[in-house]
Design a protein around this nucleic acid. Sequence first.
DNA 1: TCTGGGGTCCTAGGACCC
DNA 2: TCTGGGGTCCTAGGACCC
Length: 395
Amino acid sequence: MPLRFIAHLDMDAFYASVELLRYPQLRGKPLVIGGRRRTAADLSRGAAIPTLREYSGRGVITTATYEARALGVHSGMGLMKAAQLAPDALLLPADFDEYRRYSRMFKDAVRAVAPEIEDRGIDEIYIDLTGLVMSGFAGDTSDPWAHARDVAASLQRAVREATGLSCSIGITPNKLLSKIASDLQKPGGLTVLREADIPTRIWPLPARKINGIGPKASTRLETLGIRTIGELAKADRALLVEHFGKSYGAWMFDAAHGRDERAVVTYSEPKSISRETTFEDDLHPVRDRERLSRIFTDLCVRVADDLQRKGYVGKTIGLKLRYDNFKTITRDRTLEAPTGDAGTIRRAAGECLKRVPLDRRIRLLGVRIGTLSKPGAHAHRDAKSHAAHAPTLFD
DNA sequence: TCTGGGGTCCTAGGACCC
DNA sequence: TCTGGGGTCCTAGGACCC
């Protein structure tokens, strides 16, 4: 594989930073984003921003400012637990429409300089800078990595000019290393790593820093006495394969050596669309059946709306259910023909529901549609079905 | 004061077909 | 009678990521 210059760009505390543009007076204070969705009333109220102390409910932190992180809270943490650690931290509910707007702005600003972008969600991207870096380099004897650094700095300036926001960038020969590198000097960092830097910069880090090694795998690695990426790199490959399987074990070993040949993928089609909701209080399948039925139908309608808006139909309808003990089960059913119709989705999901045990309270209900396609010329469109639905356990 | 919501990918068994 | 592969689709669960 020829030498590449791959960047990973990660927006710094993205949701919180967008909020600070709107509420500059909060700058410097500990702030977390999370909890229920923001309503128009929340925005117009103009009242004081509530603190974590006042919160009650099942929300989690989606983003914490660096000031809040200094108090021990982090994304994914339950808000009730965070309130124990940082009762005076300010809490704002998320405003996803606004974050998506800023997401488009920063991606457009990057794209104007470097078009080879892979979307990795609302606040991060990979960028293949190889062409850009090398084109400035024909016959030049100076260091292309220094040039890569200049390109990255210009991207950071472009993002700041377009949005007022800061980001961190890692540049290395591949996506795996760049993802790690962009995290090394947050916020506002610019980290360039070459292959020769792996032993000093990568190997001391915990194995968990590798994108793809999560909480389960890192715990299992620890039981093998492997904590750092360096220890993983020096582990016996056969031992890893024995414990983690041929595919995952071998991948881990290669990752620890910084080997990754994946391309920057600039376009991909969605594979599934889903909507789910966690209830404020667990619902009883019998006593709360009317409420459950209404929520269920609403989820199906929202999935159908999403399909319509994005221009897809789907063939596999899925149901997701989480019980009060957090055990999660899924059921799905594949239709004869793809659909985008809320009533059809509701009927199929209703059939799935008949196949799950309803012997305990329910915490979460979700509806998913997969095996997506574009409603094509030869695909037969359903006549409008008026959301007539077959009786189900929730009716 | 446990643990959101939207995704992707992988595995594994069984059905079914050649 | 028993014994084969391989390939694809469907379903359920789980790890992981942002």
